[in-house]
């Protein structure tokens, strides 16, 4: 901490007025510089570099790097994989909502309301998948979903349902990946909702109980409205980040297949960059993804803001 041994300039404190000339104007910057530095170095400069790279054709290592204008963008938009990945990205975002928002909300309320002495045990088990490395979870699921030996198919066989090719079937694969991803993020939503519930004022709920409301009525009339900001936050995170959360599962389980059925924009970007070493197109895709992402994030922020204020 070089910054911390220098004399404190009296005027630099918040709320105080005239700053003695020439002293300590650098002190605040010394505090924020390390954080700002790493963010500029690893986020903002790369973002600009990505934009620049998107106008060149390059294979990541070669010496030739011709300027191609918007060709990379044109090629990308003409690639059917792009349209498919974009559509799948939407499916991931929306398909994750039940497992990342609805179920965690319901379970959190049940555990909070009726968990009793088991509350802590439930929380421990339900949060565990969050701390499990995603690849480890995906590998374990791969075994569960194995078309011939997997316990899921064995169990289904026991009730007379034929074996399914969970990860190899074009129609099933994306939903299998969503379930595996949802298994991982369920605990996060559960914990965030639990946190919000533990922050609620018990008074209001007890008043309603004294008024003769049933647990269901209390949940509907009091708990859910009070949780609205948290529900909106989790929805926002899921819609915005869902396809990113699925990355590890896609990479381990399907590599985007079969025939692109589980691909999404983030995974496509990875493949362009480090599968095909097509740096230019990968960068063009990154620019498009970032732009779309920014628009989506801003629109959602505004929407949640408005919905949140209505309550």
């Amino acid at each position: 901490m070089t910054s911390t041994t220098t004399a404190a300039p009296p005027g630099a404190d918040r709320g105080s007025g005239a700053r003695p000339a020439g002293t300590g104007a650098a002190l605040p910057w010394l505090h924020v510089a390390p954080a700002l530095g790493v963010v500029v170095l690893w986020v903002y400069l790369p973002l600009l570099a990505t934009l620049a790279l998107s106008f060149f054709r390059w294979n990541l290592t070669g010496d030739e790097r011709p300027f191609v204008g918007l060709d990379n963008y044109a090629a990308l938009l003409g690639d059917p994989a792009f349209a498919r990945a974009a559509g799948n990205t939407l499916i991931y975002a929306l398909g994750l909502l039940p497992l990342a928002v609805l179920l965690p909300l319901a379970v959190a309320i049940l555990v909070w309301n009726r968990g009793g002495r088991l509350r802590q045990a439930y929380r421990t088990i339900l949060f565990a998948p969050v701390i499990l490395p995603p690849v480890v979870g995906a590998v374990m699921w791969q075994w569960l979903l194995h078309p011939l030996l997997g316990v899921v198919n064995l169990a289904l066989g026991g009730i007379g349902v034929g074996p399914q090719n969970w990860l190899g079937d074009r129609d099933l694969a994306i939903w299998s990946v969503i379930v595996v991803t949802g298994w991982k993020v369920f605990g996060l939503g559960f914990l965030i909702f639990s946190a919000a519930l533990s922050g609620l004022e018990r008074n209001q709920i007890e008043a309603a109980r004294v008024d003769g409301a049933t647990e269901g009525e209390i949940t509907r009339a009091i708990v859910l409205p009070l949780l609205t900001p948290t529900i909106l936050l989790m929805t926002f995170l899921t819609v915005t980040l869902g396809a990113q959360w699925a990355f590890s599962a896609v990479h381990v389980l399907t590599q985007g297949g079969p025939a692109g059925a589980t691909d999404n924009l983030y995974y496509l970007l990875y493949r362009y960059a480090f599968g095909y070493f097509d740096t230019g197109t990968a960068s063009a895709l990154a620019v498009l993804v970032f732009a779309g992402f920014a628009v989506l994030a801003l629109a959602q922020l505004r929407l949640t803001d408005r919905l949140g204020h209505d309550r």
Partner: peptide, 26 residues
């Protein structure tokens, strides 16, 4: 420290959080 540039720094840091990692890997 209330310093000119502080709010900009805060906004820049907040905005960095939402940039998807995949967009930066190359």
């Amino acid at each position: 420290f209330r310093f000119r540039g502080g709010p900009v720094v805060l906004t820049a840091l907040a905005a960095a959080i939402i940039v998807p990692q995949q967009c930066l890997i190359v």
